[in-house]
Each structure stands twice: as structure tokens, then as C-alpha cells.
Design a protein around this nucleic acid. Structure first.
Lengths: 240, 240
DNA sequence: TTGCTTGATTCAAGCGTTTGCTTTAGTGTG
DNA sequence: CACACTAAAGCAAACGCTTGAATCAAGCAA
């Protein structure tokens, strides 16, 4: 009955990404993807209407059905955008990187998305939404853009706090390191009011990053100290 | 034309809260409020339908119009619930409270809402939603349940880090103290997967609180150290 | 060049459903 | 009767999605 449309002619058997130059009029498809990213980020899945997305993209409402099949598939496809865009800083995986340098690189990387409302910040907002209100449309293992950040930070820290397998405290340390930055995103409205002059310009963000690095070092040092004490106690116990 | 309905016969001239035993059938009104709290928390303002709220409350759809006028007013009224429920721990305002004790009280208070999906946790989720996606329906000065927490924590810390008026760094310290706890809420799905055994039972939460208290003390100490150094540098500069 | 075919893409219109809200009729109590 | 309240039906608008026709470029024979 219906013509074989692009959206299901994509060979999804192989795991590779549907190339951005797949088939069909990629200009329309891409404009739709970008528009969907922006509208989904601004309003969330449920509140974003297909009509608005199409109007924003300058295409007909039928284009969503034609290229993606339905709204849910378009949403899932939008979530695949970061697979092409997110690059984690490589310094963190270098064993020679000093603790403070690695932390500085990491926080600079994360906080760079505070300024400049480009695609990147839209993607972050989208993932944050998915945390607060899971749409149920995504594979759970893909949801959570913070997952790779967490994993990389954990890899970076483990040797530097003297362990080789993660334990609950190590995870909580990483969560705390993430948290002192994330709160500035989530509470950004409050930050703007209570502490203006923290995130409003490039040099301010740089200064904020330095504070974060200092705090992070304190957290890591506290964790190291705690582990030393625990070890000492254990050794004493074994002696007695 | 329309009967003078309860929703606009409430004396809103005086600033006092509309008593929960105002007029009309308070049972229906309250069940509507509680149901709205739960549905709004679960789905957000836009995705929550008035029909679902009424069905959940076991009342007719016309009841919303009768008691509140419309959906937006109901939403605003739901946001007034915490004014009757949120009690901040008083120990924090006692100058004699030790730093570690105050932090422990505060984190215990905050983390108590992680367990037990009662009204409290619904309220938190609701406010978190409003942070991520402001509905535009609330007065900006009321939005942000974290505001009083932030203010109280700031009051508690200022004398303990040796200042008497807040500055940007003090605010960022408070944000960081809030952040290491908030990340466990926002990223709770990730926490459950990556670090099971952190938030799943009462004793686990207690242990997590202890870790948070330790980290918080480290952050405060780092801030104090930084301020000492800065002061010393300033003094040296003045001498030269 | 010309006319024709074919497949891909876009378009306007409209389908059925759900939305927030209203209306009208009704119920029970003082 | 008067009043506070509830129930059921329905309205206009917006929703996701579908449809059939219009448009366009490419290929090809005459």
C-alpha cells in the first residue's frame, strides 16, 4: 500500500550509524533532526508537537512520517546525534597526567557547554530531561550521557586514590565531583540570581573552573585520607 | 452567569494561606490537590491531563473548574503545599552547632527524601522539574525549593568560614555542598546501576550521609584554606 | 530538443483521538 | 425553596498521523 519510505529502508541490520548522507533528500532530513533537537530540548518530548518541529524546520508535517516513521523514532534518532559529536578529553586516559591537570581539563570540558547555546548545550539539556522524566523510548543503556563521563573520571581517579577496582565509595566520589559542576547547570537560574558573576562570561567561567578544581582536589584528598585511616584501622585490628 | 465558585471566593486579599478547611467540600478539594501533586510530579505540567488527575482523585472533571478555576491555578496551588510541609532543621541556626553536626543534620534532612516516595519526594521532583523546564506559571521568587535550603546553609557557613557577607565563592561553596547531594537525586537511575548499595536501604543512606559529611567538611576546609592564603597574599602586597 | 515514464519527495487536507474547559441537569442537605 | 456540590455530555482546539494528488529531476527513446 504505502511506498517503501526512507525511514524503514535504512539497513538497520548492521550496527553502523545511518550515514548523514544516507539516501533521500538529506537536507530536509537533517534540518528536521536539528529542529527536533532544539524543540525537544526546549519543551521535552511530550510538549513538543510535530507541527512545531516541522514549522521550525521549514518542512511539511508529512516529512516526519516520510523520513522517520513517527515522532518516537525521530526522538530516538535525535538522541543518536551526540554519538557523532561528543568527544571526551583524551588527557584523562594518560597515566602521566597530574591530578590537578586532569581535573582542570575535565571541568573545562564540562563547563564549556554552559556558555554558547549551540547544539551541544541542547544535547545536554535533552539528556538532563531524560534523567528527570524518562520518556521510556530509549534503551536504558544508552540514556545518560553522563555515563561515559562517569566511567572516564572513574578510570582517571582509581589509580590516583590507590585502588584498581571500583567500590561504592569510589563511585560516590565520582558522583560528588560530577555534582559540584552539575548543580551549576540544574540550578542555573538560582546561580544567576544568587551568585551573578560566576557563569556570565568566559573569564568568569574560567575562574569558576579553578574553584571547582580546588574543591575537587580537596574531595580526592579527603577520600585518600579516609582510605589511609581505614587501612590503618584494619592493620591494627589484624595485629591485635 | 456562572455561580460564584469557591475558587474565586477565597479571600486572596489577605496574604494568608487558603486554609485547608476553607469552605466547600474540603475532602474533594484536598484529594484533588494530592492527586494533582502526584500526577504533576510524575508527568510534568504539560503531560498531566486534567482527566487523569480527576480520575486519580476519584472526582469529576468539573471539580477542577469548580474549586480552582483552571489547570494552571491548580498547579500554582499545588506549589503552595510545601509552604505547609517543609520544615528546615533548626539546629543550623544555632551558633553553637559544630560544623560537622550541622552538616550531618542538613544531609540527613535532605537525603531522608530519597527513600519513602511520600508527598515530600513528590514535591522535590516537582520543584526539580520546574528547574529543568520552567512552566512560566509561578512567581519567580517562589520557584526553587532549594532557595531556602541554600540561604540557610549559607547563614550556617558564613561565620564558620570567617565572613559576614556572602561573596561569589561562598555561594559556589554552598552550591557545591548542595551539588554532592543533588547529583544523587538527579542521577538516581545511574546511581542505582553503577553504585548499588548506596541508596537502597535506611542504613545505606545513613552511611552515604556520613560520606557526604566527610566530603563537605573537606570542601569547607579547602575554602577556609583558600581564604587564608588569599588574605596572606593581600597582607604581603600591602606590606610591599 | 521533445515527449513520456518512473521514482523520490513535498504538499494541503483531513482522519480519529485527546486535550482543557464549559454547560446543563441533577443530587443531597439545611 | 436555596444552596453547595456533583455528574454527564459536549465543545473547540490541538494532537499524531495518514492520505492522494502535485511537483520535481533523471533516464530514455524518437
Amino acid at each position: 500500500m504505502a511506498t517503501v519510505a526512507p525511514h524503514d529502508s535504512h539497513a538497520s541490520q548492521n550496527g553502523e550509524l545511518p550515514s548523514i548522507e544516507s539516501n533521500g533528500n538529506t537536507a530536509t532530513r537533517d534540518r528536521l533532526l536539528v529542529a527536533a533537537l532544539e524543540v525537544f530540548a526546549a519543551k521535552g518530548y511530550g510538549q513538543a508537537s510535530t507541527r512545531e518541529i516541522c514549522k521550525h524546520a521549514g518542512v511539511n508535517v508529512a516529512a516526519i512520517h516520510y523520513y522517520f516513521g513517527d515522532k518516537a523514532t525521530l526522538y530516538r534518532e535525535v538522541f543518536r546525534i551526540p554519538e557523532r559529536l561528543v568527544h571526551l578529553p583524551a588527557e584523562l586516559d594518560d597515566p602521566a597526567t597530574a591530578l590537578s591537570d586532569g581535573l582542570r581539563v575535565w571541568y573545562s570540558h564540562v563547563m564549556s557547554f554552559v556558555l554558547a547555546p549551540d547544539n551541544g548545550s541542547h544535547i545536554r539539556l535533552l539528556f538532563l530531561r531524560e534523567q528527570v522524566q524518562p520518556s521510556g523510548l530509549l534503551d536504558t543503556n544508552r540514556a545518560g550521557i553522563l555515563r561515559p563521563y562517569h566511567a572516564q573520571l572513574l578510570r582517571f581517579l582509581m589509580p590516583r586514590i590507590g585502588i584498581d577496582t571500583p567500590d561504592p565509595r569510589a563511585h560516590q566520589l565520582v558522583f560528588s565531583l560530577v555534582g559540584i559542576a552539575m548543580v551549576l547547570f540544574v540550578e542555573r537560574a538560582a546561580v544567576r540570581i544568587l551568585a551573578p558573576g560566576i557563569l556570565d562570561s568566559e573569564p568568569q567561567v574560567a575562574a569558576t573552573v579553578e574553584v571547582l578544581v580546588g574543591y575537587a582536589q580537596a574531595l580526592v584528598a579527603a577520600e585518600c585520607a579516609h582510605r589511609r585511616d581505614a587501612k590503618k584501622t584494619n592493620t591494627n585490628k589484624e595485629k591485635s
